[in-house]
Amino acid sequence: MNVREAATALLGTTSERSPLSEEWPELDVDTAYAIQAEALRQRRARGETLVGLKLGLTSRAKQERMGIDAPLLAWLTDAMVLPAGVPVPRLIHPRAEPELVFVMRDRLAGPGVTAATALAAVDRVYGGVEIIDSRYADYRFTLPDAVADNGSSAYFSVGPVGLPPASLDLSLEAALLEVDGQIVDTATGAAVQGHPAEALALAANALGARGLAVEPGWIVLTGGMTDAVPLRSGSRVAAHFSHLGSITLSG
């Protein structure tokens, strides 16, 4: 298997499959990012537009489980945007997680980006919900598998309230995660690398090492604030933020 074959295989998967690493034992993170980039190329060739990026595995607990000390990056396209009120399309085994979402005003290029310079480049902050959906059976994968699979990305929805970052204490901005009327989890922005601006800085510096940058107008999903919860058919998941409104999605 090569990079192009792996990207094509992942894009064509509509049901659970075994991790790439089981077929490609020498798969490493750098090769996985090459697979991710090839998949993005194919998606753009079929008409999708790049609109931003997401960070995954931003919580300390998730990083410890995966044996890493930094988040992974993945791409967002316009085909992944889920408008308010639209049911989540059928997926393999979708899960939902609340996130703080940045919309960029300025270009942000590493190396040397700090949380302060990162936050200064943000135009607005929103609440959001990401729908993740690993193609791998039972969400069983290595870090390279997850990177190649574009961070288990599927869809995302951005809430109705956008505020300047200076008007919020993002480390204290809270989210309540509700499933079918019951609050199942809660967290603050501090769950995302200590502060979501730290996650943005990490993204800018990691992209800089690859000759890329966070671009103006991009949407940046900074990472799940809580653990992701299953989104079952007929169920309803809502995220309620302290100052950024609420988002409700139905399975």
Rank of each mutant, 00 (worst) to 15 (best):
M1C: 00
A6T: 03
A6I: 09
T8H: 10
A9L: 15
L11Y: 01
G12Q: 13
T13W: 09
T14H: 15
T14S: 14
S15T: 15
E16V: 14
E22V: 08
E23P: 00
W24M: 12
W24D: 07
D28V: 07
T31H: 11
T31A: 15
A32N: 11
Y33Q: 07
I35H: 12
I35L: 05
A37C: 02
E38L: 04
L40P: 08
Q42K: 12
E48S: 13
T49L: 13
L50Y: 12
L50V: 11
G52A: 11
L57V: 15
T58Y: 04
T58M: 04
S59M: 13
S59H: 03
A61W: 12
A61N: 07
E64T: 10
M66S: 09
G67S: 10
D69V: 13
A70C: 01
P71S: 06
L72C: 10
L72H: 01
L76S: 11
T77Y: 10
T77D: 04
M80H: 09
R90S: 08
I92H: 09
R95W: 05
L100C: 10
F102Q: 00
D106S: 09
D106Y: 06
R107P: 01
R107H: 04
V113E: 05
A116F: 08
A116G: 03
A118F: 06
A120N: 12
V125D: 01
V125S: 11
G127L: 09
V129F: 02
E130L: 00
S134F: 08
Y136T: 02
D138V: 01
Y139M: 05
R140S: 13
F141I: 01
T142I: 02
P144G: 03
D149C: 04
S153R: 05
S153K: 11
A154L: 07
Y155C: 03
F156R: 00
G159S: 03
P160K: 07
G162C: 08
A166F: 01
S167D: 12
L168F: 07
D169S: 13
S171R: 14
L172I: 00
A175G: 10
V179D: 02
V179C: 06
V179L: 15
T188R: 13
A190W: 09
A191Q: 14
H195N: 14
E198V: 15
E198Y: 08
A199I: 10
A201R: 11
A201C: 09
A201F: 05
L202G: 14
A203I: 07
A203L: 08
G211R: 12
L212W: 14
A213Q: 06
A213F: 12
G217Q: 04
M225W: 05
T226S: 13
D227G: 15
A228D: 07
P230L: 13
R236Y: 00
R236A: 11
A238V: 02
A238C: 11
H243W: 01
G245K: 10
S250R: 13
G251M: 00
